[in-house]
Design a protein around this nucleic acid. Structure first.
Lengths: 104, 104
DNA sequence: ATAATAGGCAACTAAAAGGTTGCATGTCAA
DNA sequence: TTGACATGCAACCTTTTAGTTGCCTATTAT
């Protein structure tokens, strides 16, 4: 879980996921296009995404195709985001109450 | 948005949010209990959470009370997580198809 | 008043992150 | 088979991050 959060912390990596979301199965060179960094930097980012299981790769001859794996993102939604959404209204109203008490 | 992802990338900070979720409105010293780091380190983490708007504080005499703000977490769920959940099944089935093609 | 309590500020350190350059390897096309 | 293309590996550099120590300030209780 920590690896996934860490992987998502970088804007370049999120943008890579965005691009794979738009078009799945891209090669390394395809994913490099338009990014202001070297191929090697992109390789590292993809490696981190792969280590976090957010991306799966498939060799096809000399090409490496990258596929997004939506499962870890979904898990974060389930195990983490939702947890905080449950208490959402309660937390906000309590905060509001406290803020108002300040002016007494 | 980037600040929020970055803030969530650290396990200590997520644990602080967890603790505030369990009991909202804790003081700095309260939040230090049981953590294997100095008060100053916790202060920094809370500062990052505050900068990302994940935590709001309220001074009460010499105490500083920390309240969780669930809104940014919710926004990440809405604007980010859900986006990838939509294409989820499609992405997985395409990946599966590609993986099977490998063995031809 | 004064001591204890709650927190703030700043300088410093170590390690990790993000990126680079240079070179090596495997695969495809002519 | 040879050159071009797609990717891999490794050493290196710079900035950021997580944490520390040391000292200062404000509030509260005795």
């Amino acid at each position: 879980m920590d690896e996934v959060f860490k992987a998502l912390a970088d804007a370049s990596r999120r943008s890579l996921l965005d691009r794979l979301h738009a078009k799945n199965g891209q090669t390394l060179n395809e994913l490099c296009d338009g990014l202001a960094m070297t191929r090697q930097a992109v390789t590292k980012h993809l490696g981190i995404l792969e280590a976090a299981n957010l991306v799966t790769t498939l060799r096809h001859g000399r090409e490496k195709l990258h596929y997004i794996n939506p499962v870890p993102i979904h898990q974060i939604g389930e195990r983490w985001i939702r947890k905080f959404e449950r208490g959402k209204l309660a937390a906000l109203s309590e905060l509001k109450r406290q803020l108002e008490k300040r002016d007494e």
